[in-house]
Simulated assay, not measured.
Amino acid sequence: MLKVGAHTSIAGGAYNAVEEQVEYGGNCGQIFSHSPQVWQDPNIEDAEAERFRELSEDHDVGPWVIHSSYLVNLCTPKADLREKSVDSMQKEVEAADKLGVEYVNVHLGAHTGAGVDGGLDNAASALDELDVPDGVTVLVESDAGSGTKLGDQFDHLATVRERTDQEIEFCLDTAHLFAAGYDLSTPAAVDETLAAFDDVVGFGDLACVHLNDSKHECGTNKDEHAHVGEGEIGVEGMRAFVNHEAIRDVPLVLETPTEDGKSFAWNVDRVHELREA
């Protein structure tokens, strides 16, 4: 069964994200446990978490992903930022456990002068500090790149997995891949990019995809999402991606914009239209 959903809001209670997901026609999804723009601990009440679990089960919505704070930087050489990042991630995996959410998604961050190798070392050792509950997995997300950000190359992902003792898996973001220089605009390009991922990382550890088109051309390192099939990746690229054998059973989470009269519901429908039986 095709698993596709959107990033939904927990405003008014985490369980509202489930009801919003159902309205969009989604059957999996992603949330923030708090505002991603500030250092803040999740504040999820027991009854709220129980209701989230119940509604997810009743509507058969899942898996769910918690996206970590945008402030988290696992690659940083700065001790204070590292401490805040590890603490934030620990709170996220605990919130995931409470909600029955399977995954916590995080970007590696920027090495800010530590160098690529040093930044990847920092990220791996930061992940080692986490006490991740059984049933929760940390996903490292592919990045669009720019400046000293890491995670835009497949070998960055593989290196962190090799260096950490944490059992991590991965989330690919199609817009980020495209921005980082991995072409997805044609069936041949999709085959080539996914073959490269399989060679370096392997599909066995691919747990989720953020399915977004890109407003900018391949290799620009510009991270701005477009509606599925209406950006630079385009309809043929998106069709080839969602129908690729390695992707067909992977949950697809939309982070598409709400603009031009199109919302998450439109994008969920578009994915269903592109998906071949």
Rank of each mutant, 00 (worst) to 15 (best):
V106Q: 00
G29M: 08
G29R: 11
G115L: 00
H67R: 04
H67A: 06
E54G: 07
S85C: 02
I31A: 09
P42F: 11
E48W: 09
D80E: 14
G100W: 12
E129D: 04
H59F: 15
N122C: 03
H107E: 10
E45Y: 08
D121I: 00
T137H: 03
G100I: 12
R82G: 12
D60G: 11
E50G: 07
W64I: 13
S56N: 14
G118I: 07
G118K: 03
Y70M: 05
L108A: 02
T76P: 03
S85N: 01
D60W: 11
H34K: 15
E129A: 08
S69L: 15
D46H: 10
G119W: 04
D131K: 09
I66R: 09
C75E: 04
T137D: 01
N43E: 14
L99K: 13
V61S: 00
W39G: 06
H111M: 03
E92V: 03
P133G: 10
I66A: 05
P36Y: 06
P63M: 14
N122M: 02
E48H: 08
A96V: 11
R53F: 13
H67T: 07
K78H: 14
P77M: 08
V132F: 02
R53E: 09
W64R: 10
E50K: 14
D46A: 15
G62C: 05
P77G: 06
E92A: 04
M89W: 02
G118V: 05
V86Y: 01
G113R: 11
A124S: 09
N105Q: 06
D97V: 00
W64G: 08
V132T: 06
P77D: 03
P36T: 09
A114V: 01
M89H: 02
V116M: 07
H67Y: 07
T112G: 00
K98S: 08
Y70P: 04
N73T: 11
G119E: 05
D46Q: 13
K78G: 02
F32E: 06
K78I: 12
F32G: 05
